[in-house]
């Protein structure tokens, strides 16, 4: 029974992956590739947040800080090098290191405060970055509130090249994160979520595990922000905005926290919904307030189906 279930899911995943690899060779309008690119960037972003929230049980409202750092690192590097690949890679490495550094600092704060506090602290930090990014004094570096255009290397503009790059990074990241959460360290993170003080009394240094999970999640979020830049090609201060942090949270909750696949599903649903609803909104004025619907849906899911879509599917499957 269990074996057959696994076989079924393996088959489904292989088919989906194959479909995702093959379709751009047959049909690849620009809008679709761009939409798919946004979905993939957000999927990775949400996955990074799932590591933090779904596995380690840490609530942050500031994951966008890392997303923005990644985005600006690529944007600044691409302008400095005029789209040269070497500078771009250098920028990417710098962005990841910067994200790790911020993750380290936040991690130490995290180890000193209670659950809800940390959400506020991280929110405040991302708001500061937003202010800095839009500041007039830093305009030469960040472009102020107008933002910075991203110069994407030529070869990425050919056909679905960007799409395949994003796809590869996403799959690779998924594999890495999947191994992390199933490893002994991942078990400790889940244990921390379930019962922090007992984890400590078993001899695990909770402080170190918290710092570690925040750093790792931050680095993946930064990578996600970089991917996003390759798709939308402009970095604006809004990257640091609360709405992005909350999007990640929403995707994780809708798809199912602590499943790693859930956030991907959540990203598909949310990006599509935002895309569709905001375009319908221009003709049906009420729908421009679709955020209200989202908020209500979010509350309902948290209260009625806290395991999200994937978690609830699992539960249904277990009970059959």
């Amino acid at each position: 029974m269990k074996k057959r279930g696994r076989l079924f899911w393996t088959a489904v995943s292989v088919l989906v992956l194959a479909g995702l690899v093959v379709f751009p060779t047959m049909w690849a309008p620009v809008w679709l590739l761009s939409l798919a690119g946004q979905i993939m960037a957000f999927a990775l972003f949400a996955m990074s947040f799932d590591l933090l929230f779904g596995y380690a049980g840490v609530i942050s409202f500031g994951q966008a800080a890392f997303w923005g750092i990644g985005g600006y690192a690529v944007a600044i590097a691409s302008r400095a090098g005029g789209g040269a690949i070497a500078t771009l890679l250098l920028g990417a490495v710098a962005g990841i290191l910067l994200a790790a550094a911020l993750g380290l600092v936040e991690g130490f704060i995290l180890s000193r405060v209670k659950a809800g506090y940390f959400a506020m602290v991280t929110l405040a930090i991302s708001q500061i970055l937003l202010l800095l990014a839009s500041s007039q004094n830093l305009r030469p570096l960040t472009g102020g509130s107008d933002g910075l255009n991203v110069y994407v290397p030529r070869f990425l503009l050919v056909g679905p090249a960007t799409y395949y790059l994003l796809f590869a990074v996403l799959v690779l990241s998924f594999v890495v994160l999947y191994r992390f959460v199933r490893s002994p360290a991942g078990l400790v993170w889940r244990g921390m979520r379930e019962n922090e003080s007992r984890i400590e009394s078993l001899g695990y240094n909770v402080l170190a595990y918290k710092v570690a999970v925040n750093v790792v999640a931050g680095m993946f979020a930064a990578v996600a922000g970089m991917l996003y830049m390759l798709v939308i090609q402009i970095a604006t201060p809004e990257l640091f905005g609360l709405s992005n942090s909350l999007d990640a949270l929403l995707m994780v909750i809708i798809g199912g926290a602590g499943t790693l696949v859930g956030p991907v599903v959540g990203a598909v649903i949310l990006v599509l919904a935002e895309h569709e609803l905001s375009s319908i909104g221009s003709s049906v004025p009420f729908l421009s307030h679709w955020l209200i619907l989202f908020g209500l849906m979010f509350i309902l899911i948290v209260m009625a189906a806290p395991r999200g879509l994937m978690g609830t599917l699992d539960k249904i499957r277990d009970s059959i």
């Binding site: 049980g57 609530i59 409202f61 659950a115 809800g116 959400a119 909350l246 949270l249 909750i253 307030h289 955020l291 209200i292 989202f294 908020g295 209500l296 979010f298 509350i299 948290v302 209260m303 806290p306």
Partner: peptide
């Protein structure tokens, strides 16, 4: 939102956040 979830900080943080979304948008 709160009454059904006393003792569960995560749920309360998330639902009040959802309410923040709804109220902030509805005022528009």
């Amino acid at each position: 939102l709160l009454r059904p979830a006393y003792g569960n900080i995560v749920v309360q943080v998330l639902t009040t956040l959802g309410a923040f979304y709804v109220l902030s948008e509805a005022i528009k």
